[in-house]
Design a protein around this nucleic acid. Structure first.
Lengths: 226, 226
DNA sequence: AATAAAGTTTAGGCATGCCATAATCGGGCA
DNA sequence: TGCCCGATTATGGCATGCCTAAACTTTATT
């Protein structure tokens, strides 16, 4: 049990704050209890109870049957944990050589336990980086985070060009799949073709044309060239 | 909740195993429930309940009114956690520059959360060290630990010579106190004088004679020169 | 508008792990 | 032998965090 902004928080509370933060970013407006439950792999009943607790702790505002929204303090907590998570991912990969697709799970555990002192030492050692190995932005010490102006890969149309920026870090298999094909954050591409009816995209990365569809295409975040 | 040797263990269980292991090493024979309670800062009632649980888990054998002893599995668990703890201490000090007297508290938390994979990477990075920064031996991957043939500093008599090996790692203030005076593990000394009635010892470390008594002298472990 | 489906919350339980109080046991001393 | 004190345990309580089942609200369909 640690304390952030005067609020006693457990791992569970931190995970809920993170989940609500992430869901709110994906589709703004209040977040449904069910969505939270699904994301965390608990039953809706459990989520409902915890959401109520976050409300009582002043971390969120919950209107029954309507959804949850984080308060300023709740967002702060989420960003604090996010900073821990992403710093740890980068650190584990760079300093300890943990494989790219394993860092997420390790960080998931350590993030709740990292002291401010260690956070600071790690950030300094890494040179206060702005992005983790998945390309996700790392909140600053002051908990400011770079705004996301990426699009999902599968929202692009033929002829579109851009740069692959990141992928949801909770999908190590996707990371490995792309890495195996030589596609990693920073890779430039051009959409060659798009199959209708939710079909895959054909995109040129360097010399090769790759076929990418399904959930993978939906989870890939890209920055379009103007 | 992790799993060691087929037994599901929580941080609490691991802490109890560690405590019993340490107490058994200090004075062999079965360990009293009360001693465990005191070491962990819980009431005897709580310790009694947990000791019973360790028994049920097959980690210890507890004979009411007689005391507790770890089983083979229990010792294994304790050594596993000890290995985590000491590797972490060394790693934090060496790779992240955490001050010598802070590493214990950080390691105390992280030891319960360290994955086998990370343990292995850290051990390799450190070159499979045999001792942590306090001079305590680190159990091997196979959980063998170097036998302790040290004596407590205050058991020595004038004329005795030896090497300061380590100090209980749960006393950062003692560590700092000694470090401030230029005394660290490996330092050779000779006992100059010993005050009677439990008084302090006068010992020469290098050129200087230091006066050391009380709990500090009792906690310092030394190796005597033959 | 009535009803069905989907989403949400409440009620009741279970396990962990801590505490305090109070009953009980065991060994030493008179 | 009997008594007392300290160690041990039993009992009941509290908080976290998860579950299932059942009740309830909202939204969609007919």
């Amino acid at each position: 049990m640690s304390v952030h902004s005067g609020v006693p928080t457990s791992s569970a509370v931190e995970d809920y704050a993170k989940a609500i933060y992430a869901l709110a970013a994906e589709s703004d407006g209040p977040v449904s209890t069910n969505a939270v439950a699904e994301r965390l792999g608990v039953t809706p009943a459990s989520a409902s109870a915890m959401v109520k607790r976050l409300d009582e702790l002043g971390l969120a505002r919950h209107v029954p049957y309507r959804g949850v929204e984080l308060t300023a303090r709740g967002s702060q907590l989420a960003l604090e944990v996010l900073r821990h998570h992403r710093l740890l991912e980068l650190y584990l990969a760079e300093s300890l050589g943990v494989p790219w697709d394993r860092v997420h799970d390790e960080a998931e555990v350590l993030e709740h336990v990292l002291s401010e002192e260690l956070e600071e030492l790690i950030a300094t050692k890494l040179g206060n980086p702005k992005r983790d190995p998945h390309g996700d932005p790392i909140p600053t010490r002051e908990l400011e985070i770079e705004e996301d102006h990426t699009l999902s890969f599968d929202s692009l149309e033929p002829g579109g060009r851009g740069t692959f920026v990141r992928i949801s870090d909770s999908d190590p298999q996707m990371l490995r799949y792309l890495a195996d094909r030589g596609i990693s954050p920073g890779a430039a591409f051009e959409i060659v073709e798009k199959q209708p009816f939710g079909g895959p995209l054909f995109a040129r990365f360097g010399d090769e044309v790759h076929v990418i569809g399904g959930t993978l295409a939906a989870r890939m975040r890209v920055e379009v060239s103007t």
